[in-house]
């Protein structure tokens, strides 16, 4: 049970007397919306695109245990540092909120090279899977019409002339 549901229930308890019916109706509508949100399962996932760099000598031998420096676009400050493994491989996951050309510099004992890796903003997105608690515009329209019609009906009920 969420904290927000408790707050809504407290508000319902404060209503009463002659306003009990409209209050109940309103809380019922609000509670329905909240209940839908509370029962929905919200899952978020991130797809990340790791970059694996393999450095080799011209001979094909791996550039093992070499210093690696990663630079994000438009920065001369290292974004990450590390070393290649025994196969000359280094893997990192760029921050795709910084699209552009990422640069990986590999150096060891007077040898070195750089790899320029284009990273676009689309390579990683925070996406959301909703468990049915989102409403389409059509659904929202029907709900609004129902609420308005309920209000009109309630008003007519109270305004009716007594026989």
């Amino acid at each position: 049970m969420s904290k927000q549901q408790i707050q809504w229930r407290r508000r319902w308890l404060s209503l009463g007397g002659r306003w009990a019916l409209p209050g109940l109706l309103g809380v019922a509508i609000m509670g329905l919306a909240e209940r839908s949100l509370a029962h929905g399962v919200v899952m978020q996932y991130q797809t990340t695109q790791a970059v694996s760099v393999q450095a080799k000598y011209d001979s094909g031998d791996p550039f093992a245990n070499a210093q690696v420096t990663v630079y994000a676009p438009d920065s001369d400050q290292p974004w990450s540092k590390g070393t290649t493994d025994n196969n000359g491989v280094f893997t990192f996951t760029p921050d795709d909120s910084k699209p552009g050309t990422w640069q990986v510099k590999v150096r060891s004992a007077g040898h070195g090279d750089v790899a320029n890796i284009p990273v676009s903003s689309g390579t990683q997105q925070l996406a959301t899977v909703s468990g049915g608690n989102g409403y389409t515009p059509l659904q929202k329209g029907v709900m609004a019409a129902s609420v308005i019609w309920g209000c009109v009906g309630t008003a007519l009920f109270f305004l009716r002339r007594k026989a």
């Binding site: 949100l37 919200v42 795709d96 909120s97 699209p99 552009g100 903003s121 990683q124 909703s130 608690n133």
Partner: peptide, 15 residues
């Protein structure tokens, strides 16, 4: 606002 929205990464201005 409680409906979750996919977050679209911002695009950095090109150099």
């Amino acid at each position: 606002p409680q409906t979750p929205q996919a977050q679209i990464p911002t695009t950095a201005s090109p150099a």
